[in-house]
Design a protein around this nucleic acid. Structure first.
Lengths: 168, 168
DNA sequence: CTTGTTACTATGAATTTCATAGCAATATGG
DNA sequence: CCATATTGCTATGAAATTCATAGTAACAAG
């Protein structure tokens, strides 16, 4: 009789549980990563996350319903939308950065090298992985960061795009 | 022909994708939350996350395989284990804190109030929600934080425990 | 009037999750 | 001894989700 009643995590006071009902899903986080990487179109997001159309459609719809994403028309006839982060979506940035830092430090072998480098434009130096700039010690904010993909990672993304295009 | 080949996210250079293959799952994050909250036994974790036994067993096994958790025998005959965070698991703390901050700020109505308060023992004052102490400005580390559950949240947890015990 | 582009929807098999039940090994109380 | 309680799972089958693959809708370009 191992049972749990009333598993309503969205009614808990715990902010982690609340957040997880929104972003507690691999595809959702990958979609958010792409939006932060300035991929705003369905195709780009699909290609770079490697998700099926349904996965991406479902996540974008849920993210919109949860208020992290807005659709913006960039073409009528045929109707086409771009997906952009709202303020709530933008506010997710520190979580992504913390996840990135943990991923770099604990989920990769050192010889693989980094995927990105971020420059802290306030001081003009590398920001490193932490929540404060490793060069000047100030807390880093999304607006103060300029990211650059390292060649190897850029090539990986280009290759994914080519591979995607080749199948359609 | 909308298809993607070779969706091997664990081979990408992207640290976010790498991290997500490990922690990109609601139950996994909730289990980690409990381990950080010093719930080390299967029952406690099950009761507080609201997961079924299989969900918890599967996550704990995967977390162990991925090196975030170790089992520690606390009783032979019958063999009983406690689950503890490894260094890799402990290093996940900043991600959880960022998620907590986002959850408090964007997934709850203000009148609900916080679940926890953290004191930064270095300065003895409230640490707030950010990656740096709101009182002294220093980056906060897990070892320098003392968390306390607010009464409402503590009651919620007590109630969950009682409800769980009542069914077995 | 054929081919290409973009953003999906449709379908069915495979996998995962969930709720519920049960069990094994021992401690505890009478 | 014997019944009941405790702890940490495993077993089972229905329900939901995911995945791979294919196809469609609405136009644009040549």
């Amino acid at each position: 009789m191992a049972k749990i009643k009333d598993n309503k995590t969205d009614q808990t006071l715990c902010p982690v549980a609340r957040a997880e009902t929104v972003v507690g899903d691999r595809w959702t986080v990958l979609v958010l990563r792409e939006l932060f990487a300035r991929s705003h179109r369905f195709e780009e997001i699909q290609a770079q996350t490697g998700g099926t159309p349904q996965m991406i459609t479902a996540r974008l719809k849920k993210l919109e319903a949860d208020g992290l994403v807005t659709r913006r028309i960039y073409n009528k006839h045929p109707l086409r939308h771009e997906y952009h982060l709202t303020e709530k979506g933008e506010a997710f940035f520190p979580v992504l950065m913390a996840l990135r830092a943990w991923g770099e430090a604990w989920c990769k072998s050192p010889k693989e090298g980094r995927a990105m480098t971020y420059t802290h434009v306030v001081c003009g130096k590398p920001a490193g992985l932490g929540p404060v700039c490793e060069s000047c010690g100030e807390p880093v904010r999304r607006a103060d960061m300029v990211g650059e993909r390292l060649p190897k990672y850029q090539k990986e993304r280009d290759a994914r795009w080519e591979a995607f295009k080749a199948t359609r």
